[in-house]
Amino acid sequence: MNISSLLNALPGAVAQGLIWGIMAIGVYITYKVLDLADLTVDGSMATGGAVCVMLMLNGVNPYLALLCAVLAGMLAGLVTGVFHTAMGIPPILSGILTQLSLYSVNLAIMDFKANQGINVTKYSLIVSQRNVRQLGFDNPIFVTLIALAVLIALLYWFFGRELGCALRATGANEAMSRAQGINTNIAKILGLMISNGIVALSSAMLAHYQGFVDVNMGRGAIVIGLAAVIISDVLFSRLFRNFALKLTGVAIGAVVYYIVIQIVLWLGLNTNLLKLLSALIVAVFLAIPHWKAGISARRAGKGGGLHA
């Protein structure tokens, strides 16, 4: 347990955290903006990487492959959206159905292998683990920061437009949105598509970063995304009011999450227990608002009793 091994692991944790931060921004859009818990992400977090890697193995330009990955993710979001709106299936179940079917789809994309490697020496990868300690333009931390900046700027722009406002209104109050002539079904589908497109982008970048895609790499992604959103809430809710800053906070939340994980591992936790730990932490943080409300209600009740 020497400190230098921890420090050595930090750049990797930051890079991974930033890449997962992109995914967490996708989760933020469904969970916070649209007020839907979308479990599709556990599937689309592998789809993006699968599409990107397989296209590149077949000689497609890495940036074009990345774009196709995003489109594939959007398609997954579209399917969940149709399950939910046109078929009336509750959102959580819609996401689970897509997620499950994506497992087969992802395997099919990956030629029915559980993983597919992409060698950094043979292919030009946009981000790679290998460069994480190098200072320079191909450092994955640097590249991912740029990607995040562009993504946040785009989203900030979009959610200030008529269409983006309609999406936000749908998440805030559906009845009101319909009364104002917004097609809330379309808004939800669009939101799910944007979210899963972003998740697939993150997935493709993660596949580049680690040099392979694994059919299980999305398992538990929703929990990591929620963790990042919650950490950002806890750390920055007072500080970051502007939408762009909130998205930035979510990305930072993901980095914090990965650093904490790194520290916990360094303290000697068995890697296999990580998911249990993450789930418990997220459960506790999700419960905090509930507990707080309970406490203040009890206080109010007591106060009322005294006056009665």
């Binding site: 008529e162 936000r168 805030a172 109050n173 949105s177 917004i182």
Partner: peptide, 24 residues
């Protein structure tokens, strides 16, 4: 919409019946 600003709520209402596009 409680989580949106007063002026944003009005802007939503002003566009009732219009197609929502990428205009501001």
């Amino acid at each position: 919409a409680a989580t949106m600003q007063i002026e944003e709520n009005l802007a939503l209402a002003a566009r009732r019946g219009q197609r929502r596009t990428l205009r501001p």
